[in-house]
Computed example of a mutant assay.
Amino acid sequence: MFDVSIIMPVYNVAEHLPRAIESALAQKKVIGEIILVNDGSTDGSKEICEAYAEKEPLLITVINQENQGSGPARNAGMKQASGKFIYFADPDDYFSDRLLADNLALVKQRETDIIVFGYTQEKAGRLDTREVRLPRLPQMDTQKDFRKHFRNFYHFSPYALWNKLYRKEFLTKNNIKFTNQRMGQDALFNIEVYKHLESVTINRRAYYHYVTHQGSAVNRYREDRFDLELNIAKSFESLIIEWEEAEEFKDLIAEEYFNVIYLETANLVHPDCPFTTEEKVDRLTELWNDIGKNKIVPGKKDEKNPFRYALLYEMKTGHHRNALFLMKTRNLAAAKYTKPFTKIKSFFRN
């Protein structure tokens, strides 16, 4: 049995894939396996995976399947994984050669269900955009500890997979798998993890480089974006209700639903959205009257981010046309003035 199984779903990322695989191969003093799940790639990614597997047959396994999405791809990897721990890496990112050695040592020492560590966020080809993010949380040895500190935990990329190492026995015991939802399956997976989580190790060092690329799925128009995001918010709300903490975390529930409205607003102003201006206004008005008044307003009393504050104000006052104009202006400014926009992104972060 391996200490860890690195599972990497692969779909049309030939340009970045070698760096990601090399990061996995570079892990020091760790007996691990690398499972590359080619999810129907058409750009040469399949051939890159197979070339690495031929070079390192004892370490790398390739699974080829028809395109089903990253969730089913990760499930295929987990089904074959023999490691005591599971690590999910993205094929267009890279990470430190100490990631596994350091975090395995800590999580084994403390015998927890997962370990959470820091990361560096950056834009592709832009080293000046690097921002190190570290978890400022205590060690949590019980389910009670985790829920007590959940508010702070929530504010440190709770839905990311790549800044966590999962104990396979924990995932198997609780039958935790990915859904086939095309977007947000990482959020749904982690919400399921948090339902059962008993203990967490925190490592306040950064190991992973999360790289954002132009044309990523979150920046594209999707007809079904609202339904996908709403499913995440509902799942999060169900988690909190199951904990019997709906009153304590009503602001977090409201934040999840505001995120649904926020992302749908961005979706509506995307150049590829086929709706007329009036249809967009009607759509946003309808959503706010349903979700905004019932799910957001009762729990969301303040907003520190200036842009989100302005957007929330326009929606609360019924000025949905203004809200659409704000989002469109923001997106145009972000696209046109990338460098200066980076300097003030702490005020305009999604």
Rank of each mutant, 00 (worst) to 15 (best):
E54A: 14
K173G: 10
F348T: 14
G125C: 00
K123V: 06
F275S: 10
L239H: 05
E245Q: 12
L324W: 04
P135T: 03
N180L: 05
C273H: 02
N180M: 05
E279V: 10
L252D: 08
S96R: 02
I176Y: 00
V107C: 04
M315W: 04
K293M: 10
E264K: 03
M183L: 11
I241W: 10
A73T: 07
A101M: 01
A124M: 08
K144V: 07
E56D: 14
F275Y: 12
I63E: 00
A233L: 09
L127C: 09
E15W: 06
R225K: 14
V193Y: 09
K123E: 14
L332D: 15
C273E: 08
Y166G: 06
D102F: 01
D92R: 04
Y166W: 09
V132R: 06
T120K: 02
G69W: 06
V269D: 07
S235Y: 07
L311N: 01
F178R: 01
R349D: 04
Y52C: 08
S157C: 13
I31L: 13
Q214D: 11
E286Y: 12
L239Q: 05
V37S: 00
E244T: 07
D43I: 15
K280Q: 14
L268W: 04
Q68D: 10
A310L: 15
D92M: 04
I115P: 00
N350R: 15
I202Y: 07
Y87Q: 00
N322C: 10
Q109M: 12
E279H: 14
N322Q: 14
G40N: 12
A124W: 07
I86D: 00
F189E: 00
Y94E: 02
T338G: 08
K250T: 11
K234W: 09
K84V: 10
E242I: 07
R151I: 09
P298L: 05
S235D: 13
V107L: 12
G299M: 03
S96H: 07
R133G: 04
L197I: 06
G83S: 02
A53Q: 12
K164G: 06
S157V: 13
L324V: 03
S41Y: 05
L332I: 13
K195G: 08
Q27G: 08
K293W: 09
T112I: 01
F249G: 05
K108Y: 10
F156S: 04
Y262S: 00
P72Q: 05
T329W: 08
T201C: 13
Y208G: 08
D3P: 06
R136V: 07
M327N: 07
H209V: 08
I63T: 04
E22P: 08
N259H: 14
F341G: 09
L134P: 03
R205N: 14
I261D: 04
E229D: 15
R222M: 14
I232K: 05
F156Q: 02
D39A: 15
P340I: 01
R205M: 12
P274M: 01
I344T: 11
G118D: 06
V10S: 09
P158W: 12
N38I: 08
K164F: 03
L263Q: 15
F88G: 07
D102Y: 01
E15L: 11
E244Y: 09
G184Q: 08
E192C: 08
G69L: 10
I202A: 06
Y159T: 14
L104E: 03
Q27S: 09
K28A: 03
Y210E: 13
A254I: 00
E229Q: 14
V132I: 07
Y87D: 01
V62N: 10
I6A: 05
V10K: 15
A246M: 11
